[in-house]
Design a binder for these strands. Structure first.
Lengths: 293, 293
DNA sequence: CAGTATAGATGATTTAAACTCATCTATAAG
DNA sequence: CTTATAGATGAGTTTAAATCATCTATACTG
């Protein structure tokens, strides 16, 4: 029997039957194999018998109610076990990737947007779980979605998910500041990454017709900290409208009559279109909506 | 999603679909995959789509009429290719074993019984081919059936397929010898293997009431040679009735009024019941019938 | 550039594999 | 000796797999 004919006949061997055989071989019992595969022992028995007929060999010795593998059965069992293990491991990895969204981003975006909205996303997508981490490191796993903060001129247009605007915010309930009389403590941010443009405070003053001479600036390296101070009524904060949106809605912060100013800063996902899992696609659509409503 | 749940879900992934995917990935075309698997391109398309839905990932980029693997698709393709190759290789080896009977035996049995009957066996079993070799070596392949010649007291009872009887034979058409008058040339065998009992000539003479004083013995180390000499009318041969059976039927040899004598010699197959292929079982049944009719 | 060819997509229908059910046998356990 | 149980087998049912018919969108050709 030539090689090509044997190859063609091996194609006709039922993969279900091989699965049943492998399980029976490993468990040493048709009954246990049936339980493992959620079938009846009858199904296993039929599969094994058909496989033996097809291959023209005995794979098991039948010893009363017990079975044991023949030499041929042992060899085939090892091969099918090895083969299916490789396939099943890869499937499990793919399915894990397909069922969870893993995001890494800045502490501020995580705290102010992602974590507060996580439940909303998972409610809308019950088959997907969201995992959030902070920090710049992206390990070799290609399933982590990095939401980066940066200069819009550096990011690809298609990767930008939010162009940032800035404004001044204060604690809910505090009286509107008199922009020209008493001294004002204003929290702002000095990015650790020095290549980033500064928050556009000068532009904001100009667009609001303010000279800012009575403003006392205090700087943190994360917007989050300024927001927290403003909420504690220790001053006002000049920060991203993205980060304060939910806080305004929740009456934890307020904005005044001042106008927000656009900036060259943005949130972006490098190679946004390369994510292949359905859950990644759904997450990216959702986060873009959330950020740009 | 916990490990057990993912494992259970991976069981529900269609193996047919994985086969279709692997072929499409390797060939770079649904159409070529369809040809390879003797399916329609539609079947491949359905399998891939269902697999992508099940796993929640895109495995291929669709670029107009062309497809290319995504990163996830590449990784799954490698795993399924590796896995199925292991399984298919083992299947091919098993199927080769299941479709051929490989026998090794003595030159005499091969020449006088097996080779002349090979066609009969293959006619009766069109799905099995028979391969005959001679010699004592049995390589590590466990699918070769060794038919050994030996001492019945050494072999397991269940392994014996033929207990030998011996008699004297001569060329067809020659006149019956006068056992007590003229000298008779008698060919017999001196086995290479000195531990074997000699052919039972003395017992034969006794059982036939002959003193043998006019017999001139000539010995070869293979029965086959004595048989050939007898057929050439160069004398008579004292040998196994097994080896001469077909020659008697074909009127190439004749036996006289003498009675055959049983011996301690036999043909046996070590561990006869351990052969697992259906074809081995059928061959062993067949050869036992042939030898003991 | 228009017409033709072709690979993949999709929904409906058909086919065949996979599975269960019912019953049996033969061994193991109590 | 009776009961329990694992595997075997044939028949019937269910479901996955496959094809058919038709479509779309791109590539090719004259």
């Amino acid at each position: 029997m030539n090689q090509l004919l044997i190859w063609r006949l091996s194609l006709q061997v039922s993969l279900q039957a091989l699965k049943a055989f492998e399980s029976a071989a490993r468990r040493g019992s048709f009954k246990l194999a049936a339980e493992e595969l959620s079938l009846t022992p009858t199904a296993i028995s039929h599969h094994i018998s058909n496989l033996e007929s097809r291959l023209n060999v005995n794979l098991f010795h039948r010893l009363g109610r017990r079975i044991s593998l023949t030499g041929t059965g042992l060899r085939l069992a090892k091969a099918t076990s090895d083969g299916f293990r490789i396939i099943d491991s890869a499937l499990e990895e793919v399915m894990k990737a397909g069922s969870a969204v893993r995001v890494t981003t800045t502490s501020s975006l995580a705290a102010m947007v992602l974590i507060p909205s996580q439940h909303e996303f998972e409610q809308a997508n019950p088959d997907i779980s969201m995992e959030i981490s902070t920090g710049e490191s992206v390990d070799s796993q290609s399933y982590i979605i990095p939401i980066r903060f940066g200069d819009v001129s550096v990011a690809e247009d298609s990767d930008v998910i939010r162009s940032e605007s800035f404004n001044v915010f204060g604690a809910y309930g505090m009286t509107s500041p008199s922009w020209s009389n008493e001294p004002i403590t204003l929290f702002t941010t000095e990015w650790k990454n020095k290549s980033l443009p500064d928050p556009p405070l000068a532009a904001w003053l100009e667009i609001n017709g303010l000279d800012g001479s009575n403003i006392k600036l205090k700087k943190f390296d994360q917007e989050l900290f300024g927001i927290q101070q403003a909420m504690a009524e220790n001053g006002l904060v000049f920060c991203s409208t993205t980060l304060t949106k939910r806080l305004l809605k929740s009456s934890l912060l307020q904005q005044f009559d001042t106008r927000p100013v656009k900036s060259d800063l943005c949130y972006y996902v490098p190679n946004k279109d390369s994510f292949e899992t359905r859950s990644a696609a759904r997450f990216l659509n959702w986060i873009e909506d959330i950020l740009n409503q």
